[in-house]
Design a protein around this nucleic acid. Sequence first.
DNA 1: GCATTATTTGAGGATGGACTCAAATAAGTC
DNA 2: GACTTATTTGAGTCCATCCTCAAATAATGC
Lengths: 219, 219
Amino acid sequence: MDSNKSRAKRTPLQPLRSAGRQRVEELLAAASDLMAERGYEATTMAEIAARAGAKIGSLYRFFPNKEAVADALVQRHIAILEDEYAALAKRAATLSPEALADILIELLVTLHPRVKSLSALMEARTDKMEIRDRARGHAVAGIAAALRVCAPGLDEALAKDIAAVVLNTMKVLRGMLANDAPTTSGAPDELRRMNRLYLSDRLAPFRRGSDSATDGKTR
Amino acid sequence: MDSNKSRAKRTPLQPLRSAGRQRVEELLAAASDLMAERGYEATTMAEIAARAGAKIGSLYRFFPNKEAVADALVQRHIAILEDEYAALAKRAATLSPEALADILIELLVTLHPRVKSLSALMEARTDKMEIRDRARGHAVAGIAAALRVCAPGLDEALAKDIAAVVLNTMKVLRGMLANDAPTTSGAPDELRRMNRLYLSDRLAPFRRGSDSATDGKTR
DNA sequence: GCATTATTTGAGGATGGACTCAAATAAGTC
DNA sequence: GACTTATTTGAGTCCATCCTCAAATAATGC
């Protein structure tokens, strides 16, 4: 009995006044920053409270335990990411593969901090990996849809495979831009180039009124 | 004074008998497994000792503290990776860019568990990032050298940029193969294809007796 | 066998960090 | 202003985990 192995204490206790809502925001913001830079385990509840300008008791008023803080953050990040990807296809119409490649890269660079935070939060528990998979599923689906808008004849399964590749490629770009990247200053441009080249090559056969030649080659 | 902020207690105390050396091996193996799967923070010294079939006192005989265990693991992994990359260029002669691309992918897939462990270990301390950067520098240099063996006219800086891109691409492949990867079964092949395409395109102008045409296009 | 030294053992000490709670304070309502 | 209820506070409890150490045991050399 009691299938929950972790100590789930009393009711979560939501904020009912504007002061409380604001406090929750501050606490989550502080937790997000700290966990993103230090990781879940290395972040202490006392630190979270301190950075939010609150005391530890306030933190525990709104969150029953440390895991609940991570949960709340995961929720938020996932929701926003899903929205972004769902909205992607609408922007993709009437674009060349190269332009789409560039737009995708831009989008993912923008989303970088959020994804980084998310993966730091995943450190918390293994049973959250299903959530992560779900998020990635949305991302892949969103990108695949955009690809098929751009290249209507594209098979759905293949579109998803390509989308997965592009998604991960962008993950790499984010990594390059985020770190100090001491050895390779021109690498990000090279990566963009690779991405354009790849999308160009894979989407060309399926574009309207194209056979296999006349791909612009980008320069 | 005392520039070391962390508690570096008495002498590290190396094993002097075969039993001791073996114990150290067992302890490091256990620590490597545990930290790779659970992360540095989540792994306890008691667990490490237990999995190695030793008691906690033995663990502390050979390692002054938990961080030293991580340090030792980092050392080993780095050394092996450096060797692998340094040896790469020798295998690269007389290969087409496509073949080189495939070989690089194979190599990095092989190295995956080690790199995974390494990155889990990095969780330990920020001041180990310089070590990580050094390792990546070796990887990039090794791959760049292989590229220039394959395409002699290639500029060194460009070779490093391309090497960085390829290295990260392979990181992605590793990720795809490691996780369950529920949504995308054909993605690894797509990634290989992108890699071949890219290397083909970038190396073609610099190959012996080539100008810009006659690139195989892989199919 | 005996002496010496490496290794093992495991019961604590010390610390840090998650979490509690009763009392104080602030905010909202009438 | 008086009353109710949300929020804040922070000292204190509890427990997991890092780490110590003196005594027991095993290995090695003579």
